[in-house]
């Protein structure tokens, strides 16, 4: 395992290496060399299986972190490649030539976060949503409760409780649902 990381460190500018558990490591790499690193991992290091691509929204830092999870069946090791991209210029190199299912993930990320992957096929086709006219829903600034109330309305004579708040009120009525 360590040899692999050393090799990678020699050739690439990887940092934040984090051994989460035996059999799983994450590392961070700059946006520009990410595609080369992933290609290298796939072709030379045996990380032939792409588990998934996903994105984490760190709105407070103004970045999206893309996560490419790769798996090596021979060494039974999973490697998470993290790539930070700017939230304002959300664009990333497409890896649809490396795995056949990659373009589906990229299409999903395009719809859910608005990240652009130039060259990825069928990128702007609807994936889950149809006729969506708001900001991409998985972005953290999108408030799904408010949107749902506005768009879908409530049934008269009923109201929805936020279950957590309701439970606290039941348990600590004197303190107005206060926890302490």
């Amino acid at each position: 395992m360590n040899e692999l990381l050393e090799r990678l460190q020699r050739h690439f500018d990887v940092n934040n290496i984090n051994v989460l558990k035996p059999g799983m490591t994450t590392l961070k790499i700059g946006k520009d060399s990410a595609e080369i690193l992933i290609r290298e991992l796939r072709d030379r290091e045996g990380y032939t299986h792409l588990n998934f691509i996903t994105c984490i929204d760190y709105i407070e830092d103004g970045i999206f972190t893309l996560v490419y999870m790769l798996h090596n069946y021979d060494s039974k090791h999973t490697l998470g490649v993290h790539v930070d991209i700017d939230r304002e210029h959300e664009e990333m190199t497409s890896i649809h030539t490396l795995w056949a299912q990659a373009w589906t993930y990229q299409r999903e990320l395009r719809e859910m976060y608005g990240i652009n992957f130039p060259g990825s096929p069928r990128l702007d086709e609807d994936f889950c949503l149809e006729g969506w006219d708001q900001i991409p829903p998985m972005r953290r600034e999108f408030d799904t409760r408010v949107f749902s109330e506005e768009r879908f309305g409530h049934r008269e004579g009923r109201h929805s409780e936020v279950p957590r708040v309701h439970m606290k009120m039941e348990l600590y009525p004197k303190r107005g649902g206060d926890e302490e």
Binding site: N51, Q101, T104
Partner: peptide, 16 residues
């Protein structure tokens, strides 16, 4: 913060 659910059908039903 974030949960991603990876279902095997994701690739079986689309790309494959």
């Amino acid at each position: 913060r974030r949960v991603h659910v990876r279902g095997p059908s994701y690739t079986h039903a689309i790309a494959v």
